Amino acid sequence: MSAADPTGAQLLVVIDPAARRVDGESTRIARDVLCAGAVAKICLPNGPEEVARAVARRGRRRTVVIGDDRALLRVVGLLHRRRELAVAPLAWVPVGALPAVSVARVLGVPLSAVAAARAVLDGAERRLGLLADDSDGVVLGGLWVPAGATHRNTPGPPAAGARRGRAPAAAEAGPAGSGGNGGGGAGHQSWWSPAARTARTALTMLSGPGGRHPLPSCTRLRVEADGVLLADLDRPVGRVAVSAVEGLAEVVVQQRSGDEPVRARARAVTVSGPDFRYRADNRIRGPVRTRTWTAHPEAWRLTLPRA
């Protein structure tokens, strides 16, 4: 624990075990920066149960997660289920290789351990939206249905809760030498890259621009936005993408490549049909026969760089 800092910041630093294994050096650097700038209680949990106990005993401390997307989602999901998310300030130092820290890119969290740790100390708190499903799960970075193959060039969904309410990101093929997607070949940007954060880009990627990202095999899905039918089982659907934008759930339905997408904003989006899987926050979930996602504006508090 460091000496008391002049700002009086008190932190609970939860260091995910995977971060210690994958990149011990970045983890140590982040811990040292945080301890030098604030009163920091360090937690080294060995599993989800220990994370839950530490977070439950956080008191007035701000919880800082050091780890990948799953580590952050574990804490956010825990606080959501405890109905404490809105009153629990959070910060995050991403540790891991892309795509394991892809959510950081859409939220605007620096990928450098030093920069992210400094943002924890010097940044500003912002309230962000998210999607919550009917099984008490949360989605921070957007989702698509069906999940499709786990191929390195498969585009991702629009991203929920992008900074400043901007529309979500989608995968985009870039020029040679552009940012990678954590395993993709050269010339392919991550779908959460800054160049792919507009609604126009999201729609372009849904339709597979230039044939570079063709839609997966069509499936039959029923899609409703606040009870309004956008697609039914009588017509195959290529992809459904859902994200949180400006306090609502934005849904984009692509019937087939080349068709004009159908898009709408609603408080809740329901997808149903034969057993399907979906990709949320770069993780495949399901199979389910029906799932409803509800938009929660300003649902959680995250410290981000002031710039």
Rank of each mutant, 00 (worst) to 15 (best):
residue 261 P to F: 10
residue 47 G to L: 07
residue 103 V to M: 13
residue 104 A to N: 08
residue 102 S to C: 08
residue 51 V to Q: 04
residue 16 D to E: 07
residue 69 D to F: 06
residue 19 A to E: 00
residue 253 V to W: 04
residue 141 G to Y: 02
residue 135 S to F: 08
residue 136 D to H: 08
residue 243 S to A: 15
residue 67 G to W: 06
residue 288 V to Y: 02
residue 83 R to S: 14
residue 39 V to L: 11
residue 26 S to V: 03
residue 307 A to F: 07
residue 45 P to G: 11
residue 255 Q to R: 15
residue 85 L to C: 01
residue 70 R to V: 11
residue 228 V to E: 14
residue 160 A to C: 14
residue 200 R to G: 15
residue 172 E to N: 04
residue 55 V to C: 09
residue 293 W to C: 07
residue 219 T to A: 10
residue 22 V to S: 15
residue 202 A to K: 04
residue 8 G to W: 09
residue 304 L to F: 02
residue 93 V to P: 14
residue 140 L to M: 06
residue 139 V to F: 03
residue 183 G to E: 03
residue 2 S to I: 06
residue 116 A to T: 06
residue 82 R to A: 15
residue 37 G to Y: 07
residue 58 R to Q: 14
residue 151 H to M: 09
residue 270 T to H: 04
residue 55 V to L: 08
residue 298 E to P: 01
residue 246 E to N: 03
residue 25 E to D: 11
residue 100 A to E: 15
residue 15 I to K: 06
residue 241 A to Q: 15
residue 270 T to M: 05
residue 79 L to D: 03
residue 111 L to E: 13
residue 91 A to M: 05
residue 257 S to I: 00
residue 10 Q to Y: 00
residue 234 D to F: 03
residue 164 R to D: 12
residue 52 A to Q: 15
residue 293 W to R: 00
residue 5 D to K: 02
residue 58 R to C: 06
residue 132 A to E: 10
residue 196 A to P: 07
residue 53 R to A: 12
residue 293 W to N: 01
residue 145 V to S: 03
residue 156 G to R: 11
residue 276 F to T: 04
residue 200 R to W: 13
residue 75 V to P: 08
residue 105 R to C: 01
residue 219 T to S: 08
residue 96 G to Q: 04
residue 112 S to P: 02
residue 271 V to F: 01
residue 247 G to R: 09
residue 194 P to M: 02
residue 300 W to C: 07
residue 276 F to D: 06
residue 105 R to K: 14
residue 145 V to I: 15
residue 132 A to P: 09
residue 14 V to M: 08
residue 53 R to V: 12
residue 148 G to A: 14
residue 106 V to H: 11
residue 127 R to N: 01
residue 42 I to F: 01
residue 91 A to E: 06
residue 130 L to H: 08
residue 233 L to V: 11
residue 102 S to H: 07
residue 25 E to T: 15
residue 240 V to C: 12
residue 84 E to Q: 15
residue 160 A to E: 01
residue 137 G to S: 09
residue 137 G to Y: 00
